[in-house]
Design a protein around this nucleic acid. Structure first.
Length: 261
DNA sequence: AGGACGCCCTGTTCGC
DNA sequence: TGCGAACAGGGCGTCC
């Protein structure tokens, strides 16, 4: 479930659990999830070291190990992390297991193996190598407007493109556009500055509310589209049947009555 | 530049 | 009910 709000919840979870504990062992259960490193390389980088801070850029978690060494986690379409004590509680689809000297474990879970784990010596270098745009929360209104004014494709595609802004995926682009009353296929070139400013504000509000709700669909504020994104459901605002359309290869859910603009 | 597609994976949901 | 097809909250490369 990992878009910005989910990954931010993971960040806070790690911040509250794994800091400053020496790592005893690293098990790579599925080597295919490793990106530009090996099980050996990962072991060498982590063994007997501690995690010191947990950063996030868009959908990426960046975990500071020591000078010039960051562990990078990405989750793909499905993924989770879990910190636990008893080894029998190891979750299904654990692809990487880190054992701490205190007897606890951290599982990196990726059912479809679409997530990736890597190492980098600087966050900035990682961002440049992945050609990632700025994190949503590092973007000022003015920067957002300037970026958007240079583009002309479908608004939903643009919001989801990590090279423009990092952090928004299929689910939250739908939510932002629903809360803004904008059709997902509307062209960016038809937005004026005032509309872009409103979109910027709504984008920030939606993501912050989602984080407050722990990125849990069952805890979203009333009036959110998120829990309704499925066939046969109705608009939480006007009860019109929701419709879907393919945008950038993904399914966009929207309300044909509320999202004209 | 932007859009459509296939692919990587595997579990779940849909539709006949 | 059963079964295969289509789909799923991501991202990359290729083609047009």
């Amino acid at each position: 479930m990992p878009e910005l709000p989910d990954v931010e919840v993971y960040r806070q979870y790690l911040q509250a659990t794994v800091l400053h504990q020496p790592i005893e062992k690293v098990h790579v259960e599925s080597p295919s999830i490793l990106f530009e490193t090996t099980a050996q390389g990962l072991g060498r980088a982590l063994k007997h070291k501690c995690f010191h801070t947990i950063n996030r850029h868009g959908k990426y978690l960046l975990i500071f190990v020591e000078d010039k060494k960051w562990l990078v986690m990405h989750f793909g379409m499905t993924g989770d992390i879990k910190y636990f004590h008893n080894e029998v509680d190891t979750p299904n689809y654990t692809r990487l297991l880190i054992n701490f000297e205190n007897g606890y474990h951290l599982a990196y879970i990726s059912p479809r193996k679409l997530g990736r784990i890597g190492l980098t010596d600087s966050i900035q270098r990682w961002i440049v190598s992945r050609q990632l745009g700025p994190d949503v929360f590092d973007l000022s209104e003015g920067q957002f407007v300037t970026l958007a004014e240079q583009q002309r494709g479908a608004i939903k595609s643009w919001l989801m493109d990590q090279n423009n802004i990092s952090g928004i995926g299929n689910i939250y682009s739908d939510e932002i556009l629903f809360q803004s009353g904008i059709h997902p296929k509307k062209s960016l070139s038809s937005f004026n500055t005032a509309a872009l400013r409103n979109l910027y504000k709504t984008m920030n509000i939606v993501l912050k509310k989602a984080i407050s709700a722990h990125a849990d669909p069952d805890r979203m504020p009333p009036g959110f589209l998120l829990p309704c994104r499925k066939k046969g459901s109705h608009c939480p605002a006007c009860d019109t049947p929701l419709e879907s359309v393919k945008v950038a290869g993904r399914t966009a859910w929207y309300c044909p009555h509320c999202q004209h603009g």
